[in-house]
Design a protein around this nucleic acid. Sequence first.
DNA 1: CTGTTAGCGCTTTCAT
DNA 2: ATGAAAGCGCTAACAG
Lengths: 361, 361
Amino acid sequence: MAVTLADVAARAGVSAATVSRVLSGNYPVAGATRSRVLRAVEELEYVVNGPASALAAATSDLVGVLVNDIADPFFGIMASAVQSEMEPEKAGGKLAVVCNTGGSPERELTYLTLLQRQRAAAVVLTGSAVEDPGHTAALAARLRRLASAGTRVVLCGRPPLPEADGGAAAPDGEDACGPLTVAFDNRGGARRLTEHLLALGHRRIGYVAGPAERTTTRHRLEGHRSALADRGPELLAAAEHLTVHGAYDRSSGYDGALELLRRRPDLTAVLAANDTVALGVCAALRDRGLRIPEDVSVAGFDDLPFSADAAPALTTVRIPLHEAGARAGRLALGRESAPPGGVATVRTELMARASTAPPHA
Amino acid sequence: MAVTLADVAARAGVSAATVSRVLSGNYPVAGATRSRVLRAVEELEYVVNGPASALAAATSDLVGVLVNDIADPFFGIMASAVQSEMEPEKAGGKLAVVCNTGGSPERELTYLTLLQRQRAAAVVLTGSAVEDPGHTAALAARLRRLASAGTRVVLCGRPPLPEADGGAAAPDGEDACGPLTVAFDNRGGARRLTEHLLALGHRRIGYVAGPAERTTTRHRLEGHRSALADRGPELLAAAEHLTVHGAYDRSSGYDGALELLRRRPDLTAVLAANDTVALGVCAALRDRGLRIPEDVSVAGFDDLPFSADAAPALTTVRIPLHEAGARAGRLALGRESAPPGGVATVRTELMARASTAPPHA
DNA sequence: CTGTTAGCGCTTTCAT
DNA sequence: ATGAAAGCGCTAACAG
């Protein structure tokens, strides 16, 4: 039915092997032959049969990128950065495909199985991990199997897998190093952000956190609290009551801010889990008749494109998402050597803008 | 190296054929045998070799989703809706993978080739098409080849392919119907939006349009102008001077609004290519000291999640992106019958909110 | 530099 | 209901 390698070979008057060599370009072929083959390919509109070549070569050119929420630019930026390294037009180029887990651990596992089934060349897992022991174990097992099947595994924006402690399987000669990781300094960023607020004079700071069970949520919260703790134990003590949890979306920010205001109407600042949440916080404050930053300061996290020109411009913590994604992509392709220890931590940077100011009272 | 079907067969004491039948579930197998096989699969942690099965069966379970900008929720919402119909956990389930073209026609073609190489079960093209004759022809050819190779092709959020007129190839018995299409009523939406502004009393309405060569841009602009034309030729005549083009992003909105203000400082309303652009327009207006909607009304298009609780809430045109994406997904799977004529047009709905009001003067 | 020859792991008639 | 056997289209030694 479809045109095959053999058809091209026949047309060009060469053997199938020669056509294969021309197409993969990793073997010397005479110039004249090569162009004859290329012409036949053109004329026949031949397109390689991916599955057949993957089967024969025992590798495929698929690279999977798992994201928690494909509708969130946080992930979109990373995913597009990963793809930007793939060069799909080139001969050895890979096809980066993004898979949307929706934040569901089961779906994450499902996609990993599917990618293993496709014998993907690499997989990049982006975004925070769920901290459930059962899931962590299942995930680690899956990733180990992927790795041992020759698929490169890279973590981007999530912490390295916890050490496989316990007397499970002894390291059997294999190099037992976990997947390569591009981690974000969420803790340090959150810490500097809170210090910024503290330096401005704020003492009653609300925190609208992300989902409780995710690593990113925990790290940002820890950074926040460590800054508080340094300032005085009473601030830390009050923090629990000034923290609410929600999803990483706008409505959690809205609801969270309202809840915080109910608990402490004299709040002078609100920190949000991320920029999207921060926008929800702003909306709630505004609806309550509070001005930003005159009455309440607000800050986000991530520095997504819309943050800089929100009204007022949002103070936030910049994560170089594009750079991180691109690096993860290069690691996935093996085009960049592994960082020492397998973990690269990317810096985060405080972006102090108009949404934070000294408290009024 | 990896566990194969044969290993499972050996372990279960059956033939490879039986294991295959159990796994694909489309053939009667005795209950006892079946569970024995399943147990062997479990014990061996067997994962099907996708390429091998795709080669043998001449089909794969990949479904490609092409998007213009993966960092834009407009596409993210559609892509996630398409994926939501795939049931990757089920036996016959597909693996939906999204490919980011970045709006580049070449890349669109590249991805289509790659997907054809993978023998994808279906491909869904989302978002506006570039209206370049050369590219349109190349695209149509590619899609035709895909379709003839058994890949289902669905268009979502873009108009049906132009009729292949001219004396090219005669319809040779094949049913010459183009790809299935889920189109948006951009024209009608834009028309109603402009009528809303006109009804409010606005007469000097700026328009920050999208990239000139895209179908979506053209359709929205046409809708806008047809409403203007109905109100009076002088309004239509002024429209040209009140239109600027830019990308579908926030900064084009910002720059576009500034440019419009330069041309007509007495503008009373600005229509934006989409909600993201509208936010940029708002920012520019605010920076110029203009209040929304007291001094200038602003409206967007798409009704993305953030629009409802922007400040002020954005008047816009709602497109049921999720429903559209889901429908495209079902069409791609053949789980829903084709609409009459192969084209389903989804309604758009005016969402009049706080960012539009009668002009002051 | 190019052709020959085996498979890669699975699905699918065709028997039984 | 199950097994045997013939490919699917390509790659990769191995010759020449």
